[in-house]
Amino acid sequence: MTAQDTKERLLDVKGLTVEIDGRRGPAVVVDGIDLHVTKGETLGVVGESGCGKSLTMLSLMRLLPNKIKVTSGSADFDGQDLQKMSARALRKVRGGEIGFVFQDPMTSLNPVMRVGDQICEPLLYHRGMSRQDARKRAVELLRLVGIPGPEERLNAYPHELSGGMRQRVMIAIGLACDPKLLIADEPTTALDVTIQAQIVDLVKQLRSKLGMSVVWITHDLALIAGLADRVVVLYAGTVVEDAPVDALFANPSHPYTRGLLASIPTLSDAPAARLSSIGGTPPEPGRRPPGCPFAPRCPLAMDICRRDVPKLEPISSEGSHRAACFAVQKALKAA
């Protein structure tokens, strides 16, 4: 990777390791993840439940629950290491320079606080705005995220809004302070498909309008295809593949990515008799096998895969497509 490549990075995570303090001793749930987001880019983070995708993002903001700790690694955001920052400075970053949108808009909004007040909160705190200005800005934000009648909606409580509307409010809160980075953790998983289309469309528009970077965490590969510029695929707490979106879908390299792509039926393909599927189940966090975590389910597994952990290495000439797989790397050398 070139020097220039590093310069435009907004978020640069290196070797991030997260452990859970379990009854049976510490268990590694995120194992030395490297990922970065450049300015203006949308990064899709894809993985199944328990792969550590949400924990990774929460650990960046040091929002991890008790008993879960970052044990090593750094996370540079705009030139500062989030892991070393003082709690005070970090609070300025949270909700200020980095906006969050969570999966469940019902439980992530405070049910006893009016929507308007919740949007004003970060403005009052981070921007030191007056109450009046904050309310004006809140109306603007609600209009921006496409909520009709924003003046009246300010006084609504979360339960008075539909799921789609609540998620729009969450996004408005995330955007309140013009963040440089918006982290969206499965923001449409709880929503219906027509509402999901609305939200995806909204985020795409906002990103080009506001010029921010977006990290979109999801389990849905199809969704990420139309949304992201680059995709990181996680499996059992490790990055198995990192590629520009076109390259990933045109030329998936890691056997897990390939298996995942093959196992999702699509609307346009003619239906096959049986879906191809990946046998077995992902390992539980902290009970990963030695070597490559995917090896027990992998059709290409070799002896070395059960012994050593593969590193994420470039597999395309310009180096933007990377995969952590001995078989892929071996095939590449042979070619």
Binding site: S277, E284, P296
Partner: peptide
């Protein structure tokens, strides 16, 4: 495909 899932927790 009816591959047996192995759950190491058990």
């Amino acid at each position: 495909m009816t591959l047996v899932e192995t759950n190491p927790a058990v």
